[in-house]
């Protein structure tokens, strides 16, 4: 039992941190520019594919740096030549632009690497069990994932708190219009933030790519969850995104271990639902069975109860 608890916690934290890496960039973009960037997870996917390709040429470690940079450049281009033009038409066209972009990126990935999963393996230097507790071993690359994401959080925190551009970004997160009025080149700040955000997503893709499965539909699989994290965490709050990511990661992991259904709980409370009752099927779903749906339940509850999100400063 202790074994299950310890490793579930570790698994939950790793998954949560991966979600955080993905969502931190989106939080920045969404809070500053108001763009619900549907292509964010596509950038994550590009990160995974680029690191695979670059890694084949120059090895994993340079790819860890190069792939996010490349994707960041693409992000800058997307903002400069696409989003900026759509911006004046309002938010729906912006969102639809990213929607179409996500579509395009998926097809381009198919064109480049095919539809089946690619052989994106953990680099040999990280492919060993770090430690074995009781009977379960813990792979080194997961520890590496943890280290990278924590490092990224610290770096991001320092940039935001200690640099000038960080100050502007922080200001823009909470008071976007005032910043523009103060004479800052807001479009350029937007472009940089967008590029940085996509690069972060790509970094997540590099280290998430070999832990998960690198396929053209990995973007579609993770996309909605990332939105959930951003909204639950609250607009303009990296801390909120971190808490939301970890919470979702850990809750989802532990929920899997719970083979309890509403039916069982009710039975304990002395209420019995007959097999013929319309509610029987609904009540007999185990928590474990519904685990991956937990983020969405959280999302809906959170938006109804506290639309600002956990640490958000404003509603939309």
């Amino acid at each position: 039992m202790l074994e299950l608890v310890i490793f579930s916690t570790l698994n939950g934290v790793v998954y949560g941190l991966l979600l955080f890496m993905l969502s931190s960039g989106l939080t920045l973009i969404f809070s500053m520019m108001g763009v619900l960037n549907f292509a964010h997870a596509s950038m994550f996917m590009l990160g995974a594919y680029f690191s695979y390709q670059v890694g084949k040429l120059v090895g994993f470690w340079p790819a860890l740096v190069l792939a996010p940079l490349l994707v960041g450049l693409i992000g800058a281009g997307v903002e400069r030549y696409g989003l900026r033009h759509v911006h004046r038409h309002g938010h729906v066209p912006e969102l639809l632009f990213t929607f179409g972009l996500a579509y395009l990126i998926e097809e381009i990935v198919v064109m480049g690497w095919g539809r089946n999963p690619i052989e994106n393996r953990v680099p040999a230097t990280l492919d060993f069990p770090l430690f074995t507790l009781f009977t379960t071993s813990y792979p080194a690359y997961k520890a590496f994932m943890m280290a990278v994401s924590i490092g990224m959080f610290v770096a991001l925190y320092l940039v935001l708190k200690r640099t000038r551009i960080g100050l502007i970004i922080q200001a823009a997160l909470t008071h976007p219009s005032t910043v523009a009025m103060l004479g800052h080149n807001v479009p350029q700040v937007f472009m940089r933030v967008f590029a940085a955000g996509t690069a972060l997503a790509a970094l997540a893709g590099v280290i998430g790519g070999f832990a998960l499965l690198t396929t053209p539909n990995m973007a579609a699989a993770l996309g909605p969850i990332v939105f959930v994290v951003v909204v639950i965490g609250g607009l303009g709050s990296l801390g909120g995104a971190l808490i939301a990511s970890l919470a979702i990661g850990i809750m989802q992991t532990f929920a899997v271990a719970l083979d309890v259904s509403l039916l069982d709980l009710l039975r304990h409370a002395g209420v019995a639902i007959g097999r013929e009752s319309a509610l029987f099927e609904l009540a007999s779903i185990k928590i474990a069975q519904a685990a991956p749906m937990i983020p969405y339940v959280l999302l809906v509850l959170m938006l109804i109860v506290r639309p600002k999100g956990l640490l958000g400063t404003r509603e939309t």
Binding site: P224, V231, Q289, M293, V300, L303, I304, P307, T316
Partner: peptide, 29 residues
């Protein structure tokens, strides 16, 4: 429930509910 809010919040609630209903449709046969 959903129309208590407008704008992005509304959009996100519909996204979440959409996912939930799809999941339910596979579980509640």
């Amino acid at each position: 429930v959903t129309t208590k809010r407008a704008g992005t919040v509304f959009a996100m609630i519909t996204l979440g509910l959409g996912e939930l209903v799809v999941a339910a449709s596979l579980m509640l046969t």
